Simulated scan of single mutants.
Amino acid sequence: MNTVLNAGFLYAGADEETDVLLIGFADDEFDPQEYILLQKTLDPGEEDAESGFDKIHISYNNEAQSMYGGILKLYFSASVTEITLTEEAAGQLNCTRKIVIKYDQEDADLPVFHKYLLQMFADDEEVLSLDL
Results as ranks from 00 to 15, higher is better:
residue 69 G to Q: 01
residue 15 D to Y: 06
residue 16 E to C: 06
residue 81 T to W: 03
residue 6 N to K: 14
residue 19 D to P: 00
residue 46 E to F: 15
residue 79 S to N: 14
residue 1 M to I: 07
residue 131 D to F: 05
residue 111 P to R: 08
residue 5 L to M: 14
residue 123 D to R: 12
residue 4 V to H: 11
residue 37 L to A: 11
residue 108 A to T: 03
residue 117 L to G: 07
residue 61 N to P: 01
residue 26 A to C: 12
residue 104 D to W: 04
residue 128 L to K: 06
residue 101 I to Y: 12
residue 35 Y to T: 08
residue 29 E to W: 03
residue 117 L to M: 07
residue 15 D to N: 12
residue 56 I to W: 02
residue 85 L to A: 07
residue 127 V to D: 09
residue 71 I to F: 05
residue 98 K to A: 14
residue 113 F to T: 10
residue 2 N to P: 08
residue 16 E to R: 05
residue 130 L to R: 04
residue 84 T to I: 04
residue 61 N to K: 05
residue 22 L to E: 12
residue 130 L to H: 11
residue 117 L to D: 00
residue 99 I to P: 01
residue 96 T to R: 06
residue 95 C to S: 04
residue 129 S to A: 12
residue 44 P to Q: 09
residue 24 G to N: 02
residue 104 D to M: 07
residue 87 E to D: 15
residue 6 N to M: 09
residue 112 V to T: 14
residue 59 S to G: 00
residue 49 A to Q: 15
residue 124 D to P: 01
residue 17 E to A: 15
residue 119 Q to N: 08
residue 112 V to W: 00
residue 16 E to F: 12
residue 23 I to P: 02
residue 75 Y to E: 10
residue 80 V to Q: 13
residue 131 D to P: 00
residue 6 N to L: 07
residue 123 D to S: 14
residue 87 E to V: 11
residue 57 H to A: 10
residue 64 A to T: 05
residue 26 A to T: 08
residue 124 D to F: 07
residue 6 N to A: 11
residue 84 T to F: 09
residue 47 E to Y: 14
residue 25 F to Q: 08
residue 85 L to W: 02
residue 13 G to W: 05
residue 83 I to K: 01
residue 107 D to K: 07
residue 122 A to M: 09
residue 101 I to E: 07
residue 55 K to V: 06
residue 124 D to Y: 06
residue 125 E to M: 14
residue 9 F to I: 09
residue 127 V to T: 15
residue 44 P to T: 08
residue 47 E to M: 15
residue 61 N to W: 03
residue 127 V to S: 05
residue 67 M to V: 10
residue 121 F to M: 06
residue 97 R to H: 13
residue 96 T to K: 03
residue 112 V to P: 01
residue 28 D to E: 10
residue 68 Y to R: 03
residue 130 L to W: 01
residue 61 N to Y: 07
residue 23 I to K: 04
residue 102 K to G: 10
residue 46 E to C: 09
residue 87 E to S: 15
residue 45 G to I: 10
residue 59 S to D: 03
residue 63 E to M: 02
residue 30 F to G: 06
residue 127 V to I: 15
